[in-house]
Structure formats: C-alpha cells, structure tokens
Write a protein that binds this DNA or RNA. Sequence first.
DNA 1: CTGAAAGCGCTTACAG
DNA 2: CTGAAAGCGCTTACAG
Lengths: 333, 333
Amino acid sequence: MSKATIYDVAGAARVSLATVSRAINNPEKVKPETRERVLRVIEELGYKPNAFAKGLASRKSTTVAVLVPDMSRASMAEMMNGIADIARVYKYSILLYILDSEDAPEEDILKEIVAAQVDGILYLNDEITPKQFEFLRTIKNSYQIPIVLTNTIYPDSDEIPSVSIDYEKAGYEMTKKLIDEGRKNIYMVSTVRKYMVNDLKETGYLRAIEEASLTPKIMRTSGRISINTEHFNEYFKDHKVDGIIAVRDSIAVSFMNVARANHVHIPENISVAGFQNTKYAQLARPKLSCVDVPIYDIGAVGMRLLTKLMNEEVLEERRVMLEHNLILRETTR
Amino acid sequence: MSKATIYDVAGAARVSLATVSRAINNPEKVKPETRERVLRVIEELGYKPNAFAKGLASRKSTTVAVLVPDMSRASMAEMMNGIADIARVYKYSILLYILDSEDAPEEDILKEIVAAQVDGILYLNDEITPKQFEFLRTIKNSYQIPIVLTNTIYPDSDEIPSVSIDYEKAGYEMTKKLIDEGRKNIYMVSTVRKYMVNDLKETGYLRAIEEASLTPKIMRTSGRISINTEHFNEYFKDHKVDGIIAVRDSIAVSFMNVARANHVHIPENISVAGFQNTKYAQLARPKLSCVDVPIYDIGAVGMRLLTKLMNEEVLEERRVMLEHNLILRETTR
DNA sequence: CTGAAAGCGCTTACAG
DNA sequence: CTGAAAGCGCTTACAG
C-alpha cells in the first residue's frame, strides 16, 4: 500500500496529470465525465496529493501556525478545540508552536514559520507586549502572512485583527454587580505580571468603582496557589474587604480557601467572583460566580476570521468582541 | 525582505547550490573554509531552507503528527508542553490533529497524515480501543511510520511502544494505603466509558482488595459534574462507604462536595483519593490526596522515544513506565 | 476541455 | 572537496 502519485492516477484514468490536478482543484474546468472517471480512480487508489509537492508548486500550504506561549493554561486547550474544528472545515492543517519563554519569540521561530510557508498565523495569549506585537507586525508586513490575535487585544492599533470578549465591559459589569449588592470595599485581585486582558478587566473595574465614588483597591498576586495563601492571609489581616473580583477562577477559589480558614462567610461577609467559568468554579463550594468567557467560540471565530484574511476578503470588523455572561452562583448574593 | 533561496546563497558565496546544501546537512563533507563562507552568507541573508522543497526532495519532513482525541482534558495540554520542548531540541515541527469523535479516526485523517509525510506519530490518549489500535497498526505497517502511545498502554501487544506510568501499580498502592488505614468499604469510582488506563487502575484496585479479602465495589459515573452530584447522593444513601478512590481528581472533588453536603467528615469518616495531581487537588478543601502522574515527563519521554524510532535506533524498552508518587494530603489519614 | 512543458526549491548519486 | 544534472510530485500558464 505505498503511496499513489498523480502519475498513477493519470495513467489509470487515461488522462494527463494536468487533468488530474484540475479535476481536484478546478473541477469546473474539466468535462463532467472525465472528472468523474478521474475521481473514481482517485478513490480506488486512495490517492492523496503529496502535501510537499503541492505546497512547493502552489506556494500555498493550507497550513496555519498556532503560536501558544504556554499550553498548560486551561483556556488554551479549549481554544484549540475551537480552532481545530473550524480548521478542519476549511481543510487547514495546524502547525503548533509552543513558545518557550514569554519574551518576544526568537528569530529562530520566525524563520521556522516562514520556512514552513504557513498561510496564516493565530496568536493565542491573554498577554501581548509591545515587543511581541512588533514581532508579529514584522511577520505580517515582511512576508505578507495574515495574523489574528485570539483572546487578546492590542490597545494601540487594530492593524492586527483580534477576537475576544469585551473584557473591560465584563470587568465593569461584575464590579457593578457587587456595588449593587452594597459592597463598599471591593478588591480586584490581579496578577503581578501585566497581562493585556487583565489590564482591561482592571480598567472596567476602575470605571465602575469611580462611578460609585468608592476607593479602588487592586492587589497583585502571583498565580501560584502555594504563594497565594500566605499572601492573602497577610494582606487581608490589615484590610477591610467585602468584595473580591479575581482575574482568574483559580485565584478566586484560592482566596475562598483562605477566607474560610479565617471563618469569613461567603457570600454573607464577602462576595467573590472570578473570570472564565472553568471547572474550578463549578467544583468550588460555595459555587463560584464568574464571568463566562466563550473560549471555544473565541478560538473558532478567530480561525474563521483568519480564513477570510487568507482569502483576501475584506473584514467588516477588525476587533471582534463576542458576547459574555455573568454567571451568578453562590458566592454573590 | 522576501525569502532568499539556495540559489541566492550559492551566488553570494560563489559556490554551487549542492555545496550550500552540504554545508547545511553534511558539514563534514565541505572544506572548513568553504563551509564558513557559506554559513556566513546564510546568516547575512537570513536564509532558511524552504520546508516544502526540502521535504519533497528528501522524503523527510522533520515533522511529527500529534493525535489528540480531545484537547480540553487538562492532562493533554501539559503533555503537549513536554512534547514540544523535546521536539524543539530535535528540530521537529508538530502537526496537531484533534480527532473529532472518539471512534476510530476516519480514513480522511489517515490520508491527511500520510500526505503530510510526517516522520512519526504520537498518539495521546488514556483510552485505546482495539479499533483504534488497528488503525494505528495500519499506518505503522503500511507506511512505515513510527508511532508512540503516550499515557496509555495497549494490553495485548507491545507492537507499538508506549510511555506511561504503571497505572495498575498506582491503583494497587493507593488502595493498599486506604486498607492500611483500616478502611473496609472502599469504592473505586471509575467512568462509564471504558478507558484503558482506568481499567488498569481498576485492576490494581481489585488486586489490593482481594489480597485483603475485602469486597470490591466499583461504581461507574459519567465525568460530568452536574450529573455526579445526584448520582453520588443516590448511590451512597444505601451503601456503606469509608473509602473512595476516584480515577480523576475532579471526580474525587465532586464526591467530596456531596459528602460534605451530607455532613460526612473527611478524612474522619471517609478517606478520599484521586489521580493526576491537578490544580483541583490543591485547591480542594480538605486538600486532596492523589497519585501524582508526571504528565509533562510522559510527553517528553514519549517524544524522545519517537526520535529514536525515527532514527531507527533499537529500543531497549518498548513499554516505558515512569515513576509515580502517592501524594498524601488531607483527605487520607 | 485537454496536454506538453516549465518551474517550484531543494537533495543526492555520479563524476571529476 | 566540489559541480552539473536528475528527480522529488505537484501547479499553472500556454497552446491547441
């Protein structure tokens, strides 16, 4: 069962290889009966065009590169499912590049991507630094490769299209919710490292807090569970707090564990909310209220957008914002 | 900044393209000074061999296919990190195929993989059915593509090498631990669908239970949180239970939530243990005891093994079992 | 609607 | 150690 080539097909169908190629790629240019004969032979022989030869001759790879800084984030995996499903529909293959550091990707990766001749690039991250943005611009402009940012937004430019939710609005809404409950000392627990989307969540938080003439209080923690515990204990010994909005569900749950250890009741004494609606949120007790981020859809829509770009269609929207929901469970009242 | 070709390099270095090719791929066949001149030009021009041309001419792709049934499982993502890190070391690119159904992958995928000319395949799953195994055997034998199973074991044959932990032993050890605590009514909570590795965990459980002359009790649940709650409530109303070993951390946590709602104390009344050592285990209260599975390492070692296979090296071990640990936290005593 | 032929950018015997 | 040339398996103007 060694691989059939286009010559084998052409021979068996008694046509030239050019006709076989057309029957596959431009069926309308081939007489129906010829086409069917060719297609039947293809079926019989289990012929599949060699991707390298095709790529070399056509200068198109029908492959997209997915750049991921760190696969282990739960959201990345789910986003991949959305991407893969749409990629399949449009017949694109996925080349996966996991970037090792969180710095700007190195020259090496760039060269690899260029050499791989990908037709498009999806950049998955909730962070994007100016340096990384420059890197992407270089690829885009020097090599004419379309790029879509997935789950992040670059604030200063819409040169590279993006798909996400409106994180600013989500941050605003959740904060507003706690304010409406009568909370006065609402903290946003964000991360030490500056993530673009966490920044947006903070902006939304600040807007709501200001509108209500409250005092903004942002606490920055590492994402590491083991460190969080001490950190929270220390911090809230001296601080009044009756509301917590964490930028990630897992941080919210971490906080709840500390609160419970200190005999603080949720939601009686404190309201708590997270972001993402992960399994953590459902498994926590009380069940965590949070912003639901349609992460699968973000991946799927991002990939769909990229196919349009690769087809040189005009985008009616360069910053796509999908709908989100506030899921109110047991940690708010 | 359009892409330089091998001709550009050859011209600038005043050698033939054959020499450029050799300088890259068989440096020892080129006189040192020529080689250096060529390499310098390559550097200057930012030349990177076109992957398609290279693949077509050499019949090697330096690409591996990673087959994943469902990316959203936390373990898959972490395994990908291990795979990607080693792939980078050996200069392999990763083509990602997310299989949609959990049936045997369709003919389409097979053809795609073959057309992509991947040099090797990594199959990531904790399940493998005879049908899927046949599918993999077909690829392996018909097209001579090496394959490694990652995080699963096929019981009836070691024709396809695998990397995992000794799940049977892990199941045995954790059960033994609960028995040593004096537990008499230990349940294993497994899944409705038959996963290969869950099967192994069960086998280990059964061995320990038999050795202690206790009665084995296996309960099967769906993995879905919402369903678990009712299911557990119903089931344990009529059943005595003082020990639970769940095949996944999240199921264990799910169970703990139900137990707590029924005022059952952990670990005073019931010991609970999970598998994997995910973030769930650390975030749960009490903190969950579980089997730690070195999932990153499984991915890394799997990829390393595959590189050996692709180099036609002889494997000293076709079933690699990595070390695991029992992490005893607060849900056991 | 179909075929002959050039070309995509490499690798690799084969000579020298 | 190096070069000329064939070939990898396709696509795509160009003729007809």
